[in-house]
Design a protein around this nucleic acid. Sequence first.
DNA 1: GAACGGCGGAACGCAACCGTTACGTCGTAG
DNA 2: CTACGACGTAACGGTTGCGTTCCGCCGTTC
Lengths: 186, 186
Amino acid sequence: MLRGDITVAIRNAVMNELAEVGYGRLSIEAVARRAGVGKTAIYRRWSNKLEMVMEIISDVAERKVPLPDTGSFAGDLELLMMIVSKALQHRIASQIIPDLMAEAARNPQISETLQRALRTHQQAVGEKLVGQAIHRGELPEGTDADLAVDLILGPLYWRLAVAREPLSDDHLEKLTAAVTAALRAS
Amino acid sequence: MLRGDITVAIRNAVMNELAEVGYGRLSIEAVARRAGVGKTAIYRRWSNKLEMVMEIISDVAERKVPLPDTGSFAGDLELLMMIVSKALQHRIASQIIPDLMAEAARNPQISETLQRALRTHQQAVGEKLVGQAIHRGELPEGTDADLAVDLILGPLYWRLAVAREPLSDDHLEKLTAAVTAALRAS
DNA sequence: GAACGGCGGAACGCAACCGTTACGTCGTAG
DNA sequence: CTACGACGTAACGGTTGCGTTCCGCCGTTC
């Protein structure tokens, strides 16, 4: 039986290595070195870099985030944006996510894995959010959940992961208000 | 004197190579091969990969986009969003931009170059857009240009460069309307 | 027509990784 | 106490890329 503590060490090493050098430059040897483990231990678990990274990433990415339900759309939205912004400011995540997204643009397998892990899940969040709001009468009947997701995640991702500018509480508040207005008007 | 046609061939090769394999895996040898050029021709121009890529990218990125001024905020916004979405759907750009953004997260020199090339310029677009609209009375006095940029570029970038979902004319229209509403309300 | 300089090509020594193999150690299960 | 299996280490041959050097070719300049 494969030893669990070794597997954990490898997983951590992969995450850190991914954050530091990115998928393109990640090497099995470096992972082994960092994990304090032989290459054999890695090849015993996965047959190559892609498979290894994909399995580890899906695992992490599929951890469910609780869908917000605070009782009001404003509350749900604020909570969701807080959660997402915290996640995007996490040291490891903020390096790994853009890197894998870029990699997904040229590797169909990575693309598919990320889609399944992120889109399925996060789109569900958006749909639930919008659905609840419509049901409560806080948003008009035909509100486009797809559009809502773009409007909620887009600006956050842009500012935190792309432009890498700070996100003050004040700015987050304005953003929340703006998104609310945008959705109400649609 | 260095031959101009050779320089052009190298520049093109770098762009295509960047798009195909990304910065992390880009190698001087591959660039030379692709450009049909000796490695010596490259080292005669730049001293290493980073310097080469940075010079070529800044050149491309600093080409000025005409600031929209159609006479109305709605027109300006629609035009800007069209331009940006076209740019983000360009084959080469859509691969290179997320890749370099990810790389910038771990390489300060790349980060700085991109900031200067993109932010300075695109932020100016946002500020002009908002400034014109305020001047015309189409947006309230204190509208935050920073926020506007987040709201305009964020959803587009998210959808096109991250989620990689198609952007229909219909969706673009809804997005424009939503952003307008958001900014008016702020 | 001679000198110069950019060019491609080839090879250099060096380093990093690949994926695989052989070996000896050590903990655990039977 | 024995057998098994996962472990780390070390080495394998092969590939790729680095940055440099030397060569001979060829077009331009004077």
